[in-house]
Amino acid sequence: MQRRVVTSPEESRRLEALVSDIARRRDRGAFIALFSHFAPRLKSFMLRGGADPETAEEIVQEAMITVWNKAEQYDPARAALSTWIFTIARNKRIDMLRRQVRPEIDPLDAFPVEPEAPADARLALEQASADLRGSIARLPAEQRQVLQLAFFEDKPHSVISVELGLPLGTVKSRIRLALTRLRGMVAEHMP
């Protein structure tokens, strides 16, 4: 059974006055009094939530720093002071858990980038690509056309057949002939 601590109206007003002093005058004494009141309660709340003592202490520190930095944002009409402070601590805990589960991801690095190939490998690939393009350009037009549709536009043979008005067997034969010729041309360029 969870124990609920009820703060008297006088105590609530005193704590709200401390936050007001922090917001208006950056009163360190008020912050020390507010910290002394809430730090043990926040730590207990974090421990009950499954945090280890070191993590609970870190969350309390971060939450109270946020209270110091954002004291002027507290609005008693929207929430009780304890609700506001405990919500800050809870959000700090969630942020910490998210960082532990997965490190921050740069949206520009959302997909792993392969390491760049060495210059000689890139040059060899560029040369091989140029040789292949030259070989394709030397193919008869009808073979070049079916290769373009089948491999570069990724169309099924049956679609190519309909588009070109050719029998399916003719499309397959032209692709087979084109690939055979390309193998021969590429073999000529191989060392």
Rank of each mutant, 00 (worst) to 15 (best):
S82V: 04
A117F: 09
R13C: 14
S8C: 09
P112E: 00
K70R: 12
W84P: 04
S12R: 10
P103S: 07
A56F: 06
A51E: 09
L47F: 10
T170V: 15
R13H: 00
K43R: 09
E116A: 07
P156D: 15
F152K: 06
P156H: 14
G184N: 10
R24V: 08
E153P: 15
T66H: 09
S158D: 15
L166H: 10
V146Q: 03
Y74D: 04
R98I: 07
M46I: 05
V101I: 08
P76Y: 04
M190I: 12
A137K: 04
R24N: 10
M46Y: 03
P53N: 09
E62K: 14
D131T: 10
L47Y: 02
V101W: 08
Q143F: 03
L164I: 13
K172N: 13
D95C: 12
I85F: 04
T180V: 11
R174S: 07
L166K: 11
R14N: 10
A79P: 01
P9F: 01
G169L: 13
I32P: 12
I85C: 03
L42E: 02
Q2W: 00
S161W: 12
E72Y: 08
F152Y: 14
R176A: 13
Q148M: 11
E57D: 14
R3E: 09
A141Q: 08
E114C: 11
G169Q: 15
I136E: 01
E104G: 08
H157S: 04
G169H: 13
F86T: 02
A39P: 08
M64F: 06
P9L: 00
S12W: 07
Q145A: 11
P76Q: 03
R13M: 07
L166V: 11
G49V: 06
K92W: 03
A187S: 14
P112K: 12
R122N: 01
E126S: 00
T180A: 06
R122V: 09
R28G: 13
E58R: 13
A128I: 07
M185F: 12
T66S: 10
I94G: 02
A110C: 05
A187V: 13
A150E: 07
L182D: 02
G50M: 11
K155Q: 15
R174L: 15
Q61E: 10
